[in-house]
């Protein structure tokens, strides 16, 4: 691990709407080293995806986000475009990020051509390599997105992200729409890519089991704030914050003993709007 982190977020605040709108993300700080996975876990409305959008430069924010020592709020648009090739993303629904009328080969090649990473003549060969790296075959490059299953489409989205050799991939619920057996394969692929290529992940998910399996460190978000931050083992084996404990208790595990575990949280209080109303 390098002494200076790959990504450093400090005092990040993001508001949807101007002025004194309730922040969706409030004073969030976390850091990510090269080759590391930090999990960001929380329920709907906790602000985890908003953190991802800010990191990717898709949302205006207050606070500072530093990527490899550069303050993202201050870099020029040209520089930001260069940083983007190092900072990739995959989302929950790969079908929404793939163009239905373009072959997957062209779509995997496009970011490499935009960032001038391969010459046009070498693109096809590189696409073939990438498809094989994610467990598909090179001949599939000529097919269209609808010809693939959900898990295969997510592999295509991963291949496209890999093409520009990123140091960090922001994964926002990358396996939430997949069947469990397919999810297990995609998670395994992401871990293997980390081992072989040293890619860091900011890994966002609502499924605590998935986050535990993937993450070195974990931040638990609740109502826009990080309420607990520590190594995966610390957070899941010895949770300190009452919300983390409630979240862990609520997880339904395939274990007959879970039948009678009691609940200790009021689910209506996990939305900032409800909390504001109840305070009013």
């Amino acid at each position: 691990m390098t002494p200076s982190p790959l990504l450093e977020i400090s005092d990040l605040t993001v508001r949807y709407g101007a002025g004194n709108a309730t922040p969706a993300v409030n004073n969030v700080s976390l850091s990510l080293a090269a080759g590391e996975t930090v999990g960001l876990v929380g329920e709907s409305g906790s602000g985890k995806s908003t953190v991802a959008r800010a990191v990717l430069g898709l949302m205006p924010f207050e606070g500072t986000i530093t990527y490899q020592g550069e303050n993202l709020a201050e870099v020029t648009p040209t520089r930001m475009r260069a940083i983007r090739s190092d900072l990739q993303m995959i989302f929950q629904d790969p079908y929404a990020t793939l163009d239905p009328r373009m072959t997957v080969g062209r779509q995997i090649a496009e970011p490499m051509l935009v960032h001038k990473i391969v010459p046009r003549s070498g693109a096809a060969a590189r696409v073939g390599e990438l498809l094989e790296q994610v467990g598909l075959s090179a001949e599939m490059a000529g097919r269209y997105p609808h010809e693939f299953s959900g898990g295969q489409r997510q592999r295509i989205a991963i291949a496209r992200a890999l093409g520009v050799s990123p140091s960090l991939i922001v994964c926002d619920e990358p396996t939430s729409a997949l069947d469990v057996s397919v999810q297990a394969q995609v998670l395994e692929l992401l871990q293997e890519l980390q081992r072989t290529q040293g890619i860091a992940y900011l890994f966002i998910a609502h499924n605590l089991g998935v986050v535990r399996a993937m993450s070195h460190r974990v931040a638990v978000m609740y109502l826009g704030e990080i309420v607990e931050y520590g190594t995966s083992d610390e957070v899941f084996s010895n949770p300190q914050h009452p919300y983390t404990r409630a979240l862990i208790e609520a997880v339904l595990e395939p274990d007959p003993a879970s039948r009678h575990r009691p609940l200790s949280i009021d689910p209506d209080l996990t939305s900032p709007i409800n909390v504001m109303r109840s305070r009013a």
Binding site: V180, S181, Q183, A184, L187, Q191, Q194, R195, N207, L208, G209, V210, R212, A213, M214, S215, H216, S232, D233, F236, I248, V251, E253, P254, D255, P256
Partner: peptide, 28 residues
């Protein structure tokens, strides 16, 4: 079924679930 599945598919399905409790630390 949860503790002693007989069919291979059920076994595979159960093994695919990432667990939160118990011993299943990060594999990488």
């Amino acid at each position: 079924i949860l503790t002693s599945p007989q069919h291979d598919y059920t076994k595979k399905l159960l093994a695919s679930v990432p667990r939160l409790h118990g011993d299943q630390p990060r594999t990488a």
